[in-house]
């Protein structure tokens, strides 16, 4: 794993210590062995892109990191906290990890600003005023401060996904998980979301991104993990993956999507 570790990320950030550690993680959906011994780690400020055919377990993998899916064997450690069945551990990890979903999952009954301010108020115990200031700041950062008082249903898909990113950032997480963030978007809206993610990577955020956007991966990723049949078949820098893939399955998959 460390053969690829230059001490700087693709966007020029200083790499830190390992913040996510997975050791031999297994998960079954009934008889289906969806994660078959995943061992991987992510260092601070690193951007890791996870890719692979559908059903390969890549979404399930990042969902085990904040326990939206339970792993049945192995060890997951996030920011020094081991994931156990203890709800306090799980909630501690969730506070440190932000997640962005394919379907945005904004709360339709709350305005944009309330969507973002909700968790800081209830989980971080900020005052409403502080939380709203923070929300406005983040909306500025994702480029849509003028939408603060609207409801999610009044925004375009790209805008909704940017609000979702702002909502996750509002908890000031140490790690951001992106589960196919652009897959539900119309083509002309993909760029605005990727731009926000690029900016986030440059600011030194640790990110795990499940995506099919290979141009984005090539530009921003420090490391790419190729998933197939519940295993990490191959990993390496974007250059290694795109120019010199080692495994036939990687080659085949890349030839199909590029």
């Amino acid at each position: 794993m460390n053969e690829i570790a230059t001490e700087r990320t693709a966007t020029g950030q200083q790499l830190g210590e390992e913040i996510i550690i997975c050791r031999d993680v297994h998960k079954w959906f009934g008889d289906f062995h969806v994660l078959n011994g995943i061992t991987a780690s992510v260092r601070k400020a690193e951007v890791v892109v996870v890719f692979g055919p559908s059903g390969s377990g890549k979404s399930t993998f990042i969902r085990t990191i904040n326990r939206l899916e339970e792993h049945q064997k192995g060890q997951i450690i996030v920011d020094g906290i081991e994931m156990t069945n203890d709800i306090r551990n799980i909630e501690a990890i969730r506070r440190e990890t932000g997640m962005v979903f394919q379907q945005f999952n904004l709360f339709p009954h709350l305005t944009v600003i309330d969507n973002i301010a909700l968790a800081p108020i209830w989980v971080r115990k900020k005052t409403r005023k502080e939380a709203e200031l923070l929300a406005l700041e983040l909306l500025e950062r994702v480029g849509i401060p003028e939408q603060a008082r609207k409801y999610p249903g009044q925004l375009s898909g790209g805008q909704q996904q940017r609000v979702a990113i702002a909502r996750a950032l509002a908890m000031q997480p140490r790690v951001m998980l992106f589960d196919e963030p652009t897959s539900a978007l119309d083509p002309e809206m993909i760029k605005e979301v990727l731009d926000v993610m690029r900016e986030l990577a440059r600011s030194g955020m640790t990110m795990i991104v499940v995506t099919h956007e290979m141009a984005f991966a090539r530009e921003v990723a420090d490391r790419m993990l190729f998933f197939d049949a519940g295993q990490i078949v191959e990993q390496g820098t974007p250059e290694q993956i795109f120019e010199h893939p080692q495994h036939d399955r990687t080659k085949l998959f890349l030839s199909q999507i590029l």
Binding site: N66, L68, E91, R94, R95, T97, G98, M99, F101, N105, L106, F107, L118, A119, W122, V123, R167, A168, M171
Partner: peptide, 10 residues
């Protein structure tokens, strides 16, 4: 919706 709420730490 529930997943999003949980992921935020609620």
């Amino acid at each position: 919706q529930i997943e999003a709420a949980r992921a935020l730490g609620l």
